[in-house]
């Protein structure tokens, strides 16, 4: 195909499903998971409690739980539900699983630091992400069953998970970053085409939280590596 041919394509041409089908993914996974997503809610609330304890073991457990959330939302939502209608979503699903494995590796190889953090700010941002973002899918679909919980919905998981940037050491931070950015760009383009305007807040929030993750991370001098 010539360059002119490629230019004649729009983003819409690459999205082979409609907003109804996409929003139903949230409803379907919530229906199929019930009541296990309640555990995800408990974990989402428990993570800032762990971080606030300012000790390495608790912080490692928090990052470990984030790792689990990446894996579950990637394999569950993206590979299992979204992948059949959108093959790039399946690829992202496996990338989410790899991201989860990466965080797990950080936990077990000293990649989680114990430097002092602005815990209050981190906790507020975390709670904003896991408490506000889940309702956006509901706002777009009009169905409360579409709630996009941390650990279930990839958008909320990535947004809150961006704050792990503040918890891992510098090397791990840079390895952890690319998927956050790629996912945000991909999902923003997708949600723009689908015209799910409320949900479009999620990738924007993710990028802001990436910035916050770096901002809240300890200075290089304090970082163990």
């Amino acid at each position: 195909m010539s360059g002119a041919d490629w230019l004649s394509y729009s983003l819409q041409d690459f999205v082979m499903f409609g907003p109804q089908v996409f929003l139903r993914l949230f409803v379907r996974i919530n229906q199929d998971l019930w009541p296990w997503q309640l555990l995800a809610v408990v974990i989402a609330i428990f993570i800032p409690v762990l971080i606030s304890r300012q000790n390495r073991a608790a912080r490692r457990l928090a990052v470990g739980l984030m790792s689990l959330a990446w894996i579950v939302s990637g394999y569950g939502f993206l590979v299992g539900y979204f992948g059949p209608i959108n093959w790039p979503a399946a690829w992202f699903g496996w990338a989410f699983v790899a991201q989860g494995a990466l965080l797990a590796a950080a936990v077990f190889s000293g990649g989680v630091h114990d430097s002092r953090l602005a815990i209050g700010r981190l906790a507020v941002l975390w709670l904003l992400a896991v408490c506000v973002l889940p309702w956006l899918a509901m706002a777009d679909s009009g169905q409360w069953e579409a709630v996009g919980l941390f650990g279930v919905a990839p958008g909320t998981t990535a947004a809150a998970g961006a704050l792990a940037l503040a918890l891992v050491t510098r090397t791990w931070r840079w390895v952890y970053l690319p998927l956050l950015v790629l996912w945000s760009l991909f999902s923003a383009a997708l949600l723009w085409v689908l015209q799910t305007w409320w949900l479009l807040v999620t990738p924007v929030a993710t990028l802001l939280l990436v910035g916050a993750g770096f901002w809240l991370s300890p200075r290089t001098a304090q970082s163990p590596d």
Binding site: M16, F17, G18, Q20, V21, R24, L25, R28, P84, I85
Partner: peptide
């Protein structure tokens, strides 16, 4: 677009 509904039994 219209028939790409994945495994959604309702759809």
């Amino acid at each position: 677009i219209t028939f790409n509904v994945g495994g959604d039994e309702q759809l």
